[in-house]
């Protein structure tokens, strides 16, 4: 992730496979979501399931298997029959990050990464009532004042801690219980700045929150004027792809069918409307070859950051 990643276009040009087993699937499919109902992955997954159902001609049932940020769902997916009837939809963090700090019973090679349909957003936000709004202003303010930061994952904490050390900030970092716990801390100005995995989307239009910088590898199409950390000269980023994942060993023609369904969904207006309009995740289509490489590249880079 130390290089800017410029191949989304290339990926969309990778054409869908020519021939597939048109008779697959013959029975209902199961889409596993590694989070409880109601979160952004769940919303996207349910809409995706509806659209894939149109393409595949069989019901796609959604099953929530919450626990350990999808680690439970991946552990179970590893042990299911690799026939394509059970697949997982979700972010890749449980593969690129969780195994580094926690002992888990699966590895990257246990799965195949068929298609990414949306890109996760990782922003650094502040309250609009603070005397600073851009990331440079935060750093400048922090050189003279003690600052506080609200983290959501150990990864964003590690990055911010490294930047704080580099810039000589006196920074206290507090844990939050996810996006819902972050918002009151920022709005109530209990903390100076915070990590947001998408929650900011509903506070920036009212002007209550400012996005100071993106931790993602690329600027968000929804905030084109906000720079990424890498553009600001800090060599860190967090990448997360919402991907369709099957156990390793799934037959070739089945995978092609699923990828075609994913590509169909990525072009569907309903999926785009909800994913971009409500969860503020840009919709993309990234095929298997590139996703396999992405997952391994992100893992290697994350290991480097966490080793610091």
């Amino acid at each position: 992730m130390k290089k800017t990643f410029a191949a989304i276009l290339g990926a969309t040009m990778m054409t869908a496979p020519m021939a597939y087993a048109a008779d697959w699937p013959t029975r209902p499919l199961t889409m596993v979501i590694g989070f409880a109902p109601g979160g952004s992955t769940d919303i996207q997954g349910r809409v995706l399931a509806n659209v894939m159902e149109e393409f595949l001609g069989q019901p796609v049932n959604v099953v929530n298997q919450p626990g350990g940020g999808s680690a439970v769902a991946f552990t179970r997916l590893k042990n299911t029959e690799p026939d394509g009837y059970t697949f997982l939809f979700g972010g890749t963090t449980a593969l690129t990050f969780t195994p580094i700090i926690t002992p888990v019973e699966y590895e990257i090679d246990d799965f195949e990464y068929l298609a990414a349909v949306a890109i996760g957003q990782n922003a650094i936000v502040t309250s609009a009532e603070q005397p600073f709004s851009t990331f440079d202003e935060i750093i400048a303010h922090g050189r003279d004042n003690p600052m506080t930061y609200a983290q959501q994952t150990p990864l964003d904490e590690a990055i911010i801690r490294a930047i704080a050390d580099q810039e000589g900030l006196d920074l206290a970092i507090v844990p939050t219980g996810g996006g819902g716990g972050m918002a009151p801390l920022v709005l109530g100005r209990e903390v100076d700045f915070a990590y947001s995995g998408g929650t900011h989307a509903q506070y920036t239009p009212t002007g209550e929150m400012n996005v100071a910088a993106f931790m993602s590898a690329e600027r968000s199409p929804f905030y084109p004027e906000v720079p990424t950390l890498m553009e600001l000269g800090y060599d860190y980023s967090i990448e997360d792809y919402r991907t369709i994942i099957v156990p390793a060993g799934t037959p070739e023609d089945v995978k092609e069918r699923l990828m075609a369904a994913a590509e169909y969904a990525s072009e569907s207006q309903a999926f785009k409307d909800i994913t971009e309009g409500n969860t503020f995740f840009p919709v993309v289509y990234i095929g298997q070859e590139e996703m396999e490489a992405n997952v391994r590249r992100i893992r290697a880079a994350t290991e480097e950051v966490m080793a610091d």
Binding site: D42, G180, I274
Partner: peptide, 26 residues
């Protein structure tokens, strides 16, 4: 404020979002 008060309210956010509605001050 757009902040879910408890688990059921958090589930409602998801349901709202599926219908293209962002809950909160907006």
């Amino acid at each position: 404020l757009g902040i879910p008060g408890n688990v059921s309210a958090a589930l409602l956010i998801g349901a709202f979002a599926i219908h293209g509605i962002t809950v909160g001050p907006l």
